[in-house]
Design a protein around this nucleic acid. Structure first.
Length: 277
DNA sequence: CATTACCTGCAA
DNA sequence: TTGCAGGTAATG
């Protein structure tokens, strides 16, 4: 479900709700595989009576910094939600982990498909995670020149490359398609064949698509909600994702859907020609 | 590079 | 009943 804009929106709402708060204990872990590391006993022991410094994001990971320099790291995968609610709120059947906060509230992890994972990592673990991930596309250091260097010599096609978190961190299936549409580039285009002007267009498209979606608090197609349970608005502004058969907003040509690297891929055959330059 | 696995719900 | 879904890791 969630890509960079959704995770960033969860981070912001979570930081507001959790900064300075205390985790008093673990009320329930009803799907233990959610806890990826460490073992559940140690997980609960370390979390008990920890204060929360703040909430950060790296790629699609939520990082909740704790007062002992460990961090609770959460990946929502497809259907995960992190919710701050009153302890009186009924626990719905898809809730997998419940943490008890001071002030009679819960931090709940809800996840229909059980793909989401939570880690309790020390500083070394956080650094290792960071090293596995490519640059943050909304950081100032992510320039068009940086993207030129990342794509140079690459034989892979653009769509799968944009989904590779080791190259650029945070894009997923929605925003990869939206960025390629905005840049006027075909998803099957060989990355290394782009000229500098095309890479500059792709860079501008990636940053604009992500920034716009953050401003609209993410895309809610079904499961995604922020930490207060609110939906996003960006689903009302998608150009091609999920719009196969409907007119391209730029030229009116019907949007096509193909499968690339096992992922549904949406594009405008007129605005996104496959060139061989 | 492609396929499978992890899971459940929902629409066709 | 089948296939598909916003993600990623583990296999050939």
């Amino acid at each position: 479900m969630p890509e960079l804009p959704e995770v960033e929106t969860v981070r912001r709402t979570l930081d507001e709700a959790l900064r300075g708060r205390e985790i008093l204990g673990v009320a329930a872990i009803t799907w233990p595989r959610t806890i990826a590391a460490p073992a559940v006993d140690m997980f609960c022991g370390v979390l008990c009576n920890r204060q929360i410094w703040g909430v950060r994001r790296r790629a699609k990971y939520i990082i909740i910094d704790l007062d002992n320099e460990d961090a609770l790291v959460v990946h929502l995968r497809m259907t995960g939600r992190l919710l701050v609610v009153s302890e009186d709120e009924p626990v719905d059947p898809y809730t997998r982990v419940v943490l008890i906060l001071n002030g009679s509230e819960h931090l709940r992890f809800r996840d229909v498909r059980k793909f989401g994972r939570i880690w309790l990592l020390d500083r070394a673990g956080l650094e290792q995670l960071d090293r596995q991930l490519g640059p943050e596309p909304l950081d100032p250091g992510f320039t068009a020149e940086a993207l030129v260097n990342l794509l140079r010599g690459r034989q892979a096609r653009l769509k799968p490359l944009l989904l590779d978190q080791r190259l650029i961190a945070g894009l997923g299936n929605i925003y990869a398609d939206e960025a390629l549409w905005r840049a006027g580039l075909h998803p099957l285009q060989t990355a290394g064949e782009l000229n500098d002007e095309e890479v500059a267009r792709l860079h501008a498209a990636i940053t604009a698509v992500l920034a716009d979606a953050v401003a609209r608090r993410g895309t809610t197609l079904s499961d995604y909600r922020d930490a207060l349970g609110e939906m996003g608005e960006n689903q009302n502004y998608l150009a091609v994702y999920g719009r196969q058969g409907q007119p391209c907003p730029r030229c009116g040509t019907p949007v096509e859907r193909v499968v690339v690297a096992q992922r549904g891929t949406h594009f405008c055959p007129h605005c996104q020609p496959l060139s061989s330059s």
